[in-house]
């Protein structure tokens, strides 16, 4: 008896199987969730929209709340880009954020790797000591840092701006946790193959934690790019300012030039976008496990 002669009720229910599952009506909870997300999205985008909008306005229109400038102008951009100061701040910020990022990626991971993969007496204490520095806020540290920079002659220099951030407890902690996912077998296999410990770290362990390194690089770059308090305190001369410090002083004492600040801010988001686009490619999960059992 073929399927066709069967009474309809017994026929294999192809139609039923092919039919799309009935669309679930979106329930109330879901609608509320979407609404909240939507509002959150607006709240996050608005400042950026206003930043760009203000940067296209003439000074007299700055305190007007409208989103579309009445007479859009790129005058502000020409002014900021031709102003030598902004150029200097931009270069300063690039140098500082880049050097700090490289330093963190190298040294945080070196220390994190050591704490993770080597058993030595006092290891736990060192780790706890590093972690505990996370509990001290920057505001408490700037005065000791300042006094230290002063006595060492680091005030108003790149080194002075950078030294507190060249390594971070957070980065060390992050890297230590990620190195836990690198199997010891990988390291021991390399040891048997004759690599020294530094080579193992660099050629075996580091490539396996690329996603973490990329995340760390993004964090550190953004953190240093937007850092304000410490660079403000440690710098004196206008040529040593970073972008945030310099921008905050745009205009003269009496009149803050918001349109210029917003223009500078808009330009200064470009490197952060580039960094994010470059490094997020590496944030691919599951790289480590691929070499283990299938």
């Amino acid at each position: 008896m073929s399927a066709v002669d069967m009474p309809a009720s017994q026929r294999p229910t192809t139609e039923a199987a092919l039919a799309k599952p009935p669309r679930r009506p979106a329930n109330m909870g879901q609608i509320i969730r979407w609404l909240l997300l939507f509002l959150g999205g607006i709240a996050m985008v608005m400042p950026i929209v206003y930043m760009i909008s203000t940067s296209l306005k003439w000074p007299h229109e700055v305190y007007n709340i409208n989103l579309i400038p009445e007479e859009p102008t790129i005058e502000n951009y020409t002014y900021v880009l031709e102003d030598g100061r902004f150029y200097w701040w931009f270069v300063n910020s690039i140098i500082i954020a880049t050097v700090t990022t490289i330093s963190n990626v190298l040294f945080d991971s070196l220390v994190g790797y050591t704490l993770c993969k080597f058993k030595f007496p006092g290891r736990q204490i060192v780790f706890i000591a590093i972690l505990s520095t996370l509990m001290i806020p920057t505001e408490m540290l700037v005065i000791p840092w300042y006094l230290m920079s002063q006595s060492l002659g680091w005030l108003d220099s790149y080194w002075g701006i950078m030294f507190p951030g060249l390594m971070t407890a957070f980065g060390t902690f992050l890297m230590k946790q990620f190195f836990e996912s690198v199997p010891d077998d990988f390291i021991e296999a390399a040891r048997i193959d004759g690599l020294n410990e530094l080579q193992i770290w660099w050629t075996v362990a580091m490539p396996l934690v690329k996603p973490a390194l990329a995340a760390l690089a993004i964090f550190v770059f953004l953190g240093n790019w937007t850092a304000f308090l410490w660079p403000l305190i440690v710098t004196n001369s206008v040529e040593m300012y970073t972008v945030p410090v310099g921008l905050s002083g745009f205009g003269d004492e009496a009149d803050v030039a918001w349109e210029l600040i917003m223009t500078g801010a808009a330009i200064s988001t470009i490197p952060t976008l580039i960094v994010f686009l470059v490094f997020q490619r590496f944030i691919i999960r599951g790289v480590v496990m691929a070499g283990l059992k299938g």
Partner: peptide, 18 residues
Amino acid sequence: PKERNIAMVFQNYAIYPH
């Protein structure tokens, strides 16, 4: 280990995914 001229194969293969 490298001075002993031995080679080892691990349970999890330990071949490098990258």
